[in-house]
């Protein structure tokens, strides 16, 4: 059983099929960047990208993701260690406090930017409307980031950070 994480192949041997992707990352591979907040898809702290799309890794069985490209928070920066535009924006706008939900927020926001680029709607997007990163409303960001709880209450700063990254990318 192999997983491809942040561009690296990892051999997990004969993995117990009960192992979630989240627990495989953390407890088997020691990749602790991804966090467990609720373990039931109710908080978003464990968000990772699978083939470029965000999911809750706590509800994914690792064995079902053999062959998928998995990206965690540790895979968001450039190869030379330069933070991504979102990571930089999160620091600039103080978009976290305790930092526990941050990995999930960043993975989620990374996916969000791609979803908007692809024109994928949220519940707030009018039918037939064109989406663009430069014209993404704050309410769209709020709705699209609502799958990531932050108890410290950094939401307002997260919106500012995502907006900055969206504008930079547009």
């Amino acid at each position: 059983m192999k997983l491809q994480i942040d561009g690296q192949d990892h051999d997990l041997g004969d993995l117990d099929p009960r192992t979630t992707l989240l627990d495989a990352l953390r407890e088997r591979l020691g990749l602790m960047g991804t966090k467990k907040g609720c373990d039931h898809g109710q908080c978003g702290a464990c968000t990772v990208l699978v083939n470029g799309r965000r999911i809750n890794s706590c509800l994914a069985l690792a064995v079902m993701h053999e062959g998928d490209a998995i990206t965690t928070v540790a895979g968001l920066e450039a190869d030379d260690g330069t933070p991504s535009a979102l990571q930089e924006a999160f620091m600039e706008h103080d978009a976290f406090q305790c930092g526990y939900c941050t990995a999930g927020q960043l993975c989620s926001a990374t996916s969000l930017l791609r979803e908007v680029k692809r024109g994928e709607p949220s519940v707030l997007t009018p039918m037939g409307a064109e989406l663009s990163l430069s014209e993404l409303s704050d309410d769209e960001i709020r709705e699209r980031m609502s799958g990531n709880l932050c108890r410290c209450g950094a939401y307002a700063n997260i919106v500012a950070a995502v907006r900055q990254a969206a504008e930079a990318e547009s």
């Binding site: 898809g41 978003g44 968000t47 699978v50 799309r53 965000r54 999911i55 809750n56 509800l59 994914a60 989620s108 996916s111 969000l112 979803e115 709607p121 949220s122 519940v123 039918m127 699209r144 609502s146 799958g147």
Partner: peptide, 15 residues
Amino acid sequence: SKALLSGATQQLRNK
């Protein structure tokens, strides 16, 4: 489409 997007979160809908 609206019903789907009213439910859960993007992470859950992706799965």
